[in-house]
Amino acid sequence: MSTFQVPTLADMIAQGKAPEVLFWVGCAGSFDDRAKRITKAIARILHHCEVPFAVLGAEESCTGDPAKRAGNEFLFQMQAAQNIAVLNGYEVQRIVTGCPHCFNVIKNEYPELGGTYEVMHHTQFIRDLIGQGRLKVADGNPFKGRRITFHDPCYLGRGNGEYAAPRDVLSSLDAELVEMKRCKQNGLCCGAGGAQMFKEAEKGNREVNHKRTDDVLQVKPNVVATGCPFCNTMMTDGVKHAEQEGQIDVKDIAELIAEAADLFPSN
């Protein structure tokens, strides 16, 4: 990051400081080049709003979600035990995640294994920052009047009943929000969940993300907003496959807001 340094929790504790919130980056957000841009947008937002936050850096490890959903409960619980030991060791209380899968697992599955925290998805956290007046869209916001549609991530929407937060954030962009025919409870999966991201799709007549892209094309948006790094990959591929990458941008809500609030240094 060019203008500020994201602190790790270890550094912060060493300096005798305690963050308000831990930013749980997730594997995609840490390693995937496209998803790293989302991570940086979230970090910029937190920094801009002067939220005292830290990341775990190398001390973070996979939550175990894809292992669990693929049937490997042992590996999941080993990952959970290791992560919970780290989080509890640092006495972490609040967590904001950049990925709905991490969000779901830490919020719903870690408590029974000894890890109880207040967990928020980044769209929820950003909504609160906007609500508190700490984050404002700039005057020259490039999304004003643009058509934006939101693709609900399964583990934020159906999994945890959060349909409002991402839409609330988007509504601050002064854009034209359009809903796909299948949205919220009825939203169609991007095709990446349940460990599908890490394997070839089973035999069929289409790819799930191509099917979902049909829904996107129907509403003719300028931007598909996502809230999950995996959805982002799938929708980006889908839009490319439909040869619409010049017309339709696929961006995470954090990126849209960071851009609209002019948080990226001009280059």
Binding site: K68, R69, E73, Q77, N104, K107, N108, E109, E112, L113, C154, Y155, R158, G159, N160, G161
Partner: peptide, 8 residues
């Protein structure tokens, strides 16, 4: 919660 999967 619907997203939660049981811990064995």
């Amino acid at each position: 919660q619907q997203g939660a999967m049981d811990n064995m």
